[in-house]
Design a protein around this nucleic acid. Structure first.
Lengths: 203, 203
DNA sequence: ACAAAAGTGTTCCTGTTACACCCATGT
DNA sequence: ACATGGGTGTAACAGGAACACTTTTGT
């Protein structure tokens, strides 16, 4: 019975970003590639719905989601897609091979009808927000080096940054706590590890 | 027949701002005060729906709307309210006495269930966006004086600004064209009138 | 010894702030 | 004549950009 179970009028879609050499986002393979989505259920808020979409597609939980924009569903029906985006460290997600894959944001495949603008909107917002909000940390593990942090900015901003100016700026922001630990990662001096001062916005 | 016409799952709400001594927004008197809303119809985009909400409540047309945020409907049902905001010059709107009224944003009455956060969100966004986007002009007529423009900033930012610095900043932004006209408005020197360089974003 | 990333200060320049007086008009 | 808002420049300051070398490790 199509009539009693029509396409649901409100769905959420999630653009999940990570950084692994480059900025990547998670797409699910179907007829075409598409974003994880879910239909808004009874007694469910939009944000939980988006979290569910993400969990069902990837198993990722405890991520900080931010609402992006609400789009018309591409056909004329009175339906909408409420989009969210989220940032995760690469190694925090176990992508189940059948379900989702990390795709380089600079080389996107053909994506389901109407979802291209969602992805574009998410990329723009991410780059814009990085400039004024401390969100880069969400790409990193609990402890991280300043070099790692700097590459996040360089990858998303698509330009190299001056190391000394970058470090000064970060120090001035007072977001970071220096830990006692260091990380040795190759044939060079070990790097101090830092963590975010106030508990991370994730979870 | 309630069942064939249940509460629609997607509605839009519009927060219409103006400036008249203070920052005001348009509310409609019902059981409680509420924002203009409309249900998303067949073959109708979200933005047209919001424009319709506004037109039905106030007769205002040709306004530039920007999407704000999408809220859960306050009961548990899978419905959402997609909110928009817009800015208009005070004298451009003829509020029909029965339908809507301009309410000082600093002294809001009790507002319909679930709409308080929408209004709060709109006020925040307006103040934030004023800092980095040329939207103050939307409160003003086609031609305006620098004094008028400055009061818009002062009213929304809630602090007085230095006249010379303000004018320098505006000049540097190159958004304005000086006209030949002046406006004489009281017992003082007449003010030069300016207009926005590129056609205003409204309409 | 060498390669590779970590770490560290100073100078210059640009943009922002603070500030006081004359001008044109209406009453 | 006086009250009112319109109009103008300069000096101090702060924040951002450019820039090179030493340190510690692995091989």
């Amino acid at each position: 019975m199509q009539d009693t179970n029509p396409l649901p009028p409100v769905r959420t879609a999630v653009v999940l970003f990570t950084i692994q050499q480059t900025l990547k986002l998670l797409l699910v393979r179907g007829d075409l590639w598409h974003l994880p989505t879910a239909a808004l259920g009874e007694n469910e808020g939009l944000e939980s719905c988006a979290k569910r979409a993400l969990a069902e597609a990837t198993g990722v939980e405890g991520v900080f989601l931010e609402q992006l924009y609400t789009f018309n569903d591409p056909d004329g029906a009175p339906r909408v897609i409420v989009s969210y985006y989220a940032l995760v460290p690469y190694d925090r997600v176990n992508v189940r091979p059948g379900s989702g894959e990390w795709i380089d944001s600079a080389a996107l495949p053909l994506v389901a009808h109407g979802q291209r603008p969602i992805v574009a909107c998410a990329c723009e917002r991410l780059a814009a927000k990085l400039e004024y909000a401390p969100i880069a940390y969400q790409f990193l593990a609990d402890q991280f080096t300043l070099g790692e942090l700097q590459s996040v900015y360089e990858i998303i901003g698509r330009q190299p940054l001056d190391k000394r100016n970058f470090r000064r700026r970060v120090r001035a922001s007072q977001c970071l706590l220096e830990t006692r630990d260091t990380r040795r990662g190759g044939s060079h001096r070990p790097a101090k590890l830092y963590r975010l001062r106030d508990a991370r916005p994730s979870i």
